Deep mutational scan, measured.
Amino acid sequence: SDEELKKRIEELVRRGNKDEARKLAENANSDEARKWWEKLEQL
């Protein structure tokens, strides 16, 4: 689900694993996940 995906992306970003988070968001084929990633990346 998008919610689970967003949690995983956020967790990866928090751990400093941005590349992994980006790949996850891009491969998810989910606009919501991509937007979430872009938002987190700004922080």
Results as ranks from 00 to 15, higher is better:
residue 25 A to G: 03
residue 36 W to L: 11
residue 14 R to F: 11
residue 18 K to D: 05
residue 22 R to F: 11
residue 5 L to P: 00
residue 15 R to W: 07
residue 6 K to E: 04
residue 32 E to D: 10
residue 24 L to E: 04
residue 20 E to H: 03
residue 34 R to G: 03
residue 34 R to H: 05
residue 27 N to M: 14
residue 9 I to M: 06
residue 30 S to H: 04
residue 3 E to H: 10
residue 16 G to L: 01
residue 8 R to Q: 11
residue 6 K to T: 04
residue 21 A to L: 08
residue 33 A to F: 15
residue 10 E to T: 09
residue 33 A to Y: 10
residue 30 S to L: 06
residue 26 E to D: 06
residue 10 E to K: 05
residue 25 A to K: 02
residue 1 S to C: 12
residue 28 A to Q: 04
residue 37 W to H: 03
residue 20 E to P: 00
residue 12 L to R: 00
residue 32 E to C: 04
residue 14 R to N: 09
residue 14 R to D: 05
residue 42 Q to K: 13
residue 5 L to D: 00
residue 13 V to Q: 01
residue 36 W to V: 04
residue 23 K to I: 10
residue 21 A to M: 01
residue 26 E to W: 08
residue 6 K to Q: 05
residue 22 R to D: 02
residue 34 R to M: 14
residue 24 L to W: 03
residue 17 N to W: 13
residue 9 I to T: 00
residue 3 E to V: 08
residue 29 N to A: 11
residue 6 K to P: 00
residue 1 S to K: 12
residue 34 R to W: 14
residue 23 K to C: 08
residue 38 E to K: 08
residue 11 E to A: 07
residue 18 K to N: 09
residue 15 R to I: 13
residue 2 D to C: 00
residue 15 R to H: 10
residue 17 N to T: 02
residue 8 R to A: 10
residue 38 E to M: 09
residue 35 K to P: 01
residue 11 E to Y: 07
residue 4 E to F: 07
residue 36 W to H: 09
residue 3 E to R: 06
residue 33 A to K: 02
residue 27 N to A: 14
residue 1 S to H: 12
residue 32 E to T: 08
residue 17 N to V: 02
residue 14 R to Y: 07
residue 35 K to V: 10
residue 40 L to K: 03
residue 39 K to M: 14
residue 12 L to Q: 02
residue 21 A to F: 02
residue 33 A to T: 14
residue 24 L to A: 03
residue 9 I to N: 00
residue 14 R to W: 07
residue 17 N to F: 14
residue 27 N to I: 10
residue 23 K to Y: 07
residue 1 S to L: 15
residue 38 E to I: 09
residue 33 A to M: 15
residue 5 L to T: 03
residue 29 N to R: 07
residue 7 K to M: 11
residue 12 L to S: 02
residue 4 E to L: 11
residue 19 D to I: 05
residue 38 E to S: 08
residue 23 K to H: 07
residue 25 A to H: 01
residue 3 E to S: 09
residue 22 R to W: 13
residue 35 K to R: 12
residue 34 R to P: 02
residue 30 S to E: 03
residue 24 L to G: 00
residue 8 R to G: 01
residue 40 L to G: 02
residue 2 D to Y: 14
residue 9 I to A: 00
residue 39 K to D: 10
residue 29 N to I: 10
residue 34 R to S: 04
residue 16 G to T: 00
residue 4 E to I: 07
residue 20 E to R: 01
residue 40 L to A: 08
residue 40 L to H: 04
residue 23 K to D: 07
residue 1 S to M: 15
residue 41 E to M: 15
residue 19 D to W: 04
residue 32 E to N: 06
residue 33 A to E: 02
residue 14 R to P: 00
residue 23 K to N: 08
residue 11 E to D: 11
residue 33 A to H: 04
residue 12 L to K: 00
residue 19 D to H: 05
residue 18 K to W: 15
residue 18 K to V: 15
residue 16 G to K: 01
residue 35 K to N: 08
residue 1 S to E: 11
residue 38 E to N: 07
residue 37 W to D: 01
residue 3 E to P: 08
residue 28 A to I: 15
residue 3 E to D: 13
residue 1 S to Q: 11
residue 15 R to L: 14
residue 19 D to F: 04
residue 25 A to M: 14
residue 31 D to L: 11
residue 10 E to D: 05
residue 5 L to I: 07
residue 5 L to Q: 00
residue 9 I to W: 03
residue 8 R to L: 13
residue 20 E to I: 04
residue 43 L to K: 08
residue 30 S to Y: 05
residue 6 K to M: 15
residue 23 K to T: 08
residue 9 I to G: 00
residue 4 E to Y: 08
residue 20 E to T: 03
residue 30 S to W: 09
residue 28 A to P: 02
residue 33 A to L: 15
residue 24 L to M: 06
residue 23 K to S: 07
residue 40 L to E: 03
residue 43 L to T: 09
residue 31 D to N: 06
residue 26 E to L: 14
residue 11 E to R: 03
residue 42 Q to R: 10
residue 43 L to D: 12
residue 10 E to P: 00
residue 24 L to P: 01
residue 6 K to G: 03
residue 28 A to H: 05
residue 42 Q to P: 07
residue 39 K to A: 13
residue 4 E to V: 08
residue 40 L to M: 12
residue 38 E to Q: 12
residue 23 K to W: 11
residue 13 V to I: 14
residue 26 E to G: 05
residue 21 A to P: 00
residue 1 S to W: 15
residue 4 E to A: 10
residue 1 S to P: 12
residue 37 W to N: 02
residue 28 A to W: 13
residue 39 K to S: 12
residue 17 N to D: 13
residue 24 L to D: 01
residue 10 E to G: 02
residue 12 L to I: 01
residue 17 N to L: 15
residue 12 L to H: 03
residue 38 E to T: 06
residue 41 E to K: 10
residue 24 L to H: 02
residue 39 K to G: 08
residue 2 D to A: 10
residue 10 E to I: 10
residue 35 K to T: 11
residue 33 A to G: 05
residue 31 D to S: 08
residue 32 E to Q: 08
residue 39 K to T: 12
residue 36 W to M: 05
residue 40 L to R: 02
residue 14 R to T: 07
residue 17 N to C: 14
residue 32 E to V: 10
residue 12 L to D: 00
residue 5 L to M: 05
residue 17 N to K: 13
residue 24 L to C: 05
residue 8 R to E: 06
residue 8 R to I: 12
residue 42 Q to C: 06
residue 25 A to D: 01
residue 43 L to V: 08
residue 5 L to H: 01
residue 37 W to I: 14
residue 20 E to S: 02
residue 2 D to N: 10
residue 9 I to Q: 00
residue 18 K to G: 08
residue 10 E to S: 06
residue 7 K to Y: 07
residue 11 E to I: 06
residue 13 V to R: 02
residue 19 D to E: 14
residue 14 R to I: 10
residue 33 A to W: 14
residue 12 L to A: 07
residue 42 Q to F: 11
residue 26 E to R: 03
residue 10 E to L: 14
residue 14 R to L: 13
residue 41 E to F: 13
residue 1 S to T: 12
residue 19 D to P: 02
residue 42 Q to L: 11
residue 32 E to L: 09
residue 35 K to F: 07
residue 8 R to Y: 08
residue 4 E to D: 13
residue 30 S to D: 06
residue 27 N to T: 13
residue 15 R to S: 14
residue 12 L to V: 01
residue 7 K to T: 06
residue 36 W to T: 04
residue 40 L to S: 03
residue 34 R to L: 14
residue 18 K to A: 07
residue 40 L to D: 02
residue 24 L to Y: 04
residue 16 G to R: 00
residue 11 E to S: 04
residue 13 V to C: 14
residue 36 W to Q: 03
residue 26 E to I: 10
residue 16 G to D: 02
residue 37 W to K: 03
residue 14 R to K: 12
residue 43 L to S: 09
residue 21 A to W: 01
residue 23 K to E: 11
residue 20 E to N: 00
residue 11 E to F: 05
residue 18 K to T: 13
